[in-house]
Design a protein around this nucleic acid. Structure first.
Lengths: 393, 393
DNA sequence: CCACTTAAGCAACGCTGTTGCCAAAGTGCA
DNA sequence: TGCACTTTGGCAACAGCGTTGCTTAAGTGG
């Protein structure tokens, strides 16, 4: 807690203003990538004065976070100076604690992994051994990478867990972790700020950054769902450009959506869950049916949340990527034809990054707050219905 | 568009800062209701200095939006002065354009309707007659209520439509409205700013305010779903305290969630939609089954989005409220038992407000931006993981 | 070579919340 | 009744934000 009321929305002062704009500019610099942006383009994108952008970028350059990199072609006057993010200025650690393996990455500001380590892990063996392994791998990572300024470590685990409190709940197959304050324990061991989240959420966060890059700066990056089909079925939701966790980090529990009333019993006790139907189809080798079931679940989600695209991942999917992408896309296309809206196709694809998707995303748990606008409220919303409200006359 | 980049997130300057804090304080004043809040309590809730709160409230008082109202009991020193919102300082108009009826309310800042009018409406008859009727009713409302400062009009219609552009799409049964720029047309006729949204969204927004009141200031009001079962089935989603619309105002399309693979054909062309199953059960008099189907859909939603509560409304529900509330609650309770999380019960209740829910909510389309942190998309923060990032060291 | 155009920075400014201090308005004990 | 103490809330000075007005830098084109 920062000190203000119980979860209350904080008021903003000058430092908050400064931080907001700095993060905004930093985010645009990141989105620009290798290509860079000029000051005037930043001014146009933020709505700030060129002079304000000059001041902000001067501070970022002084901190080593940004640098000048060549100039554009002249359009009749002084050519624009191109600014670029300096990716190596800071780093973050991403940790993926899976059931049998630990993946640890050291990522730069651009999210690119500069060092990766893998180690076997007995997750169900309990805290002490896991913490020791993590500590050793992180130390190796920091040493091998020289000694770059590390901002913190993001940790991705199988759910359920509480992101806000940093506490694990009863992970399936690893009951003894229930209630363990993993975030604080790790923060003490590593001497770094730590952020804990579900593996699917971390993956979605990492993918959000990639997609934002791909699609340009456009429109706050929109919304997508990352569906992960491995030994279970889960989802990570990015809504309106931001990861949606829900109040108790419970959002994205996609596996036990019921898509068949009174269907076969699922391990969770209910009937007709997507996960049960999907995995059963996989088990009997009927991948087409598995993809169709997954597609129906995805279509429900797309329609309910007005989502822009669907990304698939997880071991089971990766064993037959074309089959799943095709099957899910088929269902979505069928439903898009009948939709009342513009009927825009919702693209389906395999989540890039392969086996490292989650670890890369875990690093983003630390990096993401540096970029996008902290203070969601400070920025006048993107809608502004009509000529904006007349300033409380 | 405000002038900055294409949908880009705007930078913040001093006026934005001022507006943010003013809205924040105004929101807390509204939440306090009749009871009022002291300056120091506002300072604690916002994290601002008492002196800053004094300045902000002084401005609000000068604008007539807030006023002093008595004092608290002393705790050994000077007693605190209680501040209250002045509800009558401004007003907003809420319009519910239903298929056969127009409901128009004039609401004060607290959202309380101070005047209500109803008129028959032939929605499918097309724009000209509808606009004329609306203009007449609004004029009557403004005249009868004296001449209070009216901020604008919120308009709630059956979907689908585009909230951002203010344009209707192909409303079922009223094809000739497709593409009509209702917001701008009404804005010109009425000489007021106009905001357009789906009826379910307006209802959810209005209910969000009521719930926020009920639950105290707690936690940004959390999340809930409003399920509307009338001639169709739709939903309004409030996530993280803010109404979630999706990029194309398509969020909340709940009726055509598939809950029975290869179930009976629905009017939309798909099979096994909740709406079809639910309405079919209603038609054959099996209300228990209708409630159960609705409950399964609600449970999917609760689990996927980590929602705090479910509110039911709409004509069909209101004909048998206890039956639906009980049936839905039953399904949710069954599933809560098997849930891995804390298993907190998700309460189910009838949405208060009865037939005026949507019109009241429509007024909130105008009022909501004045209060509390505007929610751009979702930007779900409220986390700030650990000691907050060390300020980009 | 010079007029013109465009980019970027310096200086002064208005306005924000903050800090330091003091007046106002109570309680409680002598 | 009087005085010490506590708490609230405003006044004044201040640091720092983006903005405005203007100047300097760095190109193009005739």
């Amino acid at each position: 807690m920062t000190g203000n009321g119980p979860g209350g929305n904080p008021g903003a002062n000058l430092p908050a203003l400064r931080g907001h704009n700095a993060a905004l500019v930093l985010g645009l610099l990141r989105a620009a990538g290798e290509q860079g942006v000029s000051r005037l383009e930043l001014a146009a994108a933020t709505g700030l004065t060129p002079q304000a952008v000059s001041k902000i970028t001067a501070r970022l350059r002084a901190d080593g976070l940004a640098g000048e990199a060549g100039r554009r072609a002249s359009t009749g006057g002084k050519p624009r100076t191109v600014l670029r993010l300096v990716p190596g200025a800071r780093h973050a650690i991403g940790l993926h604690l899976d059931r049998d393996e630990l993946t640890a990455v050291l990522a730069d500001l651009a999210g690119e992994p500069v060092a990766v380590r893998r180690a076997p892990l007995a997750f169900e063996a309990g805290a002490e051994r896991v913490l020791t392994t993590v500590e050793r791998e992180v130390a190796a990572l920091r040493e091998r990478a020289g000694g770059p300024l590390v901002l913190g470590a993001g940790v991705a685990c199988p759910g359920p867990l509480d992101h806000t409190a940093g506490v694990l709940h009863r992970v399936t197959g690893a009951p003894r972790w229930d209630g363990f304050p993993l975030r604080d324990a790790l923060a003490e061991r590593l001497g770094l700020p730590v952020v804990l989240d579900k593996d699917t959420n971390a993956a979605a966060l990492g993918l959000a950054q990639g997609i934002r890059e791909g699609a340009g700066t456009g429109e706050g990056a929109g919304s997508f769902a990352y569906l992960h089909l491995g030994t279970g079925l889960g989802a990570g939701l990015v809504l309106g450009g931001g990861l949606y966790r829900g109040a108790r980090t419970g959002a994205g529990e996609f596996g036990h959506q019921v898509v068949q009333l009174d269907g076969p019993v699922c391990g969770c006790g209910k009937r007709g869950c997507v996960e049960a139907l999907c995995l059963a189809a996989v088990a009997r080798g009927d991948l087409a049916e598995a993809a169709r079931v997954l597609g129906v679940g995805a279509a429900n989600l797309v329609e309910l949340l007005d989502i822009d695209r669907v990304l698939l991942g997880g071991r089971t999917v990766l064993e037959n990527p074309e089959g799943f992408v095709g099957g899910v896309a088929q269902v979505l296309a069928d439903r898009a034809r009948t939709r009342t809206g513009a009927g825009a196709e919702v693209p389906v694809s395999i989540a890039p990054g392969g086996a490292r998707t989650v670890a890369d995303g875990a690093a983003q748990l630390v990096l993401a707050p540096l970029f996008g606008p902290r203070h969601p409220g400070l920025a006048a919303r993107a809608d502004v219905p009509q000529a904006s409200m007349p300033d409380v006359p």
